[in-house]
């Protein structure tokens, strides 16, 4: 793992791009009616890394996710996936098909479809209209779906409508949908919002397990949860990166303390 985060970086960080860099945001700026949601943000994420993004409300965390997944076009800057793919030129579907999955802050599952069907829609492949019209569920796919249901502890709810699940179960179903997409990079927005403590613990374990074969970027408020994940931390403030490093490092950073306590 690259260790360059001991010194706080504000404006133009040194951005080493190793062979195993999977995501590279360079000088990304987004503004809405004069308000700068992202202000020359630069960020590097390495392959198979588990990265946590923290920051106060309005720091630009969700906007950053929007930019990476193609929902929002940046006014300036570039977003490179892998080595050369510029994400700012692509739309959501193209980016998703490159292997970038996203879980939303508010759990968004398809409430009028069953748990099984939700996972079936998420599974890799069969994305064109033609394929979908003549899709036949084969054994291997079925097995894979059951595996994932096992992982997210929803096996016994396979045929229930997703809309009938509890809040935590919806969160997990969405993580499961992300998992079954088999993305190279997973963006997870506040996965434990509204969860009980034990659910939070289980989720942390699940994400850690997932991060062994995937790159995971987690946006979170809950410091306890971030500590549990134990990954590398980036602090966002007013649309740019304020500090990076392990949780302990950033927590002792004066600027970070000022931002969090000064408010």
């Amino acid at each position: 793992m690259t260790e360059f985060g001991h010194t706080p970086i504000t404006d133009t960080p040194e951005t080493p791009r190793d062979k195993d860099t999977i995501l590279y945001l360079n000088n990304v700026t987004v503004s809405f009616d004069g308000f700068r949601a992202l202000n020359a943000l630069s960020l590097v994420v390495a392959t198979k890394e588990l990265r946590c993004i923290i920051g106060p409300n309005g720091a630009g965390k969700t906007t950053m996710m929007d930019v990476i997944t193609g929902k929002t076009r940046p006014d300036e800057g570039e977003v490179i996936f892998g080595h050369h793919t510029d994400l700012t030129k692509m739309d959501e579907a193209e980016i998703a098909n490159l292997g970038i999955g996203r879980k939303f802050q508010k759990p968004t599952v398809f409430e009028n479809l069953s748990v099984f069907e939700n996972l079936e829609l998420a599974i890799k492949g069969w994305r064109s209209v033609k394929n979908c019209l003549f899709f036949k569920l084969d054994k291997a796919t079925q097995t894979r779906i059951h595996e994932v249901m096992e992982t997210i502890a929803l096996s016994s709810h396979a045929s229930r409508l997703a809309g009938e699940l509890s809040h935590g179960q919806k969160q997990w179903l969405e993580i499961g949908m992300l998992l079954i997409q088999a993305p190279q990079l997973m963006l997870v927005d506040e996965p434990v919002a509204g969860m009980t403590d034990s659910e939070t613990e289980q989720t942390a374990a699940l994400l850690k397990q997932i991060s062994q074969d995937h790159t995971v970027v987690v946006v979170e408020h809950d410091m306890e949860f971030v500590r549990e994940l134990g990954g590398f931390v980036t602090v966002l403030h007013e649309g740019s990166a304020l500090a990076e490093g392990s949780l302990e490092t950033v927590q002792s950073n004066e600027k970070v303390i000022e931002v969090y306590l000064g408010r």
Binding site: K71, D91, G101, F104, T108, V109, F110
Partner: peptide, 14 residues
């Protein structure tokens, strides 16, 4: 019908 943008993020051409 229920969550259009979610479908996009799954990689379907809505």
């Amino acid at each position: 019908r229920d969550a259009e943008s979610r479908v996009r993020f799954l990689g379907y051409r809505v």
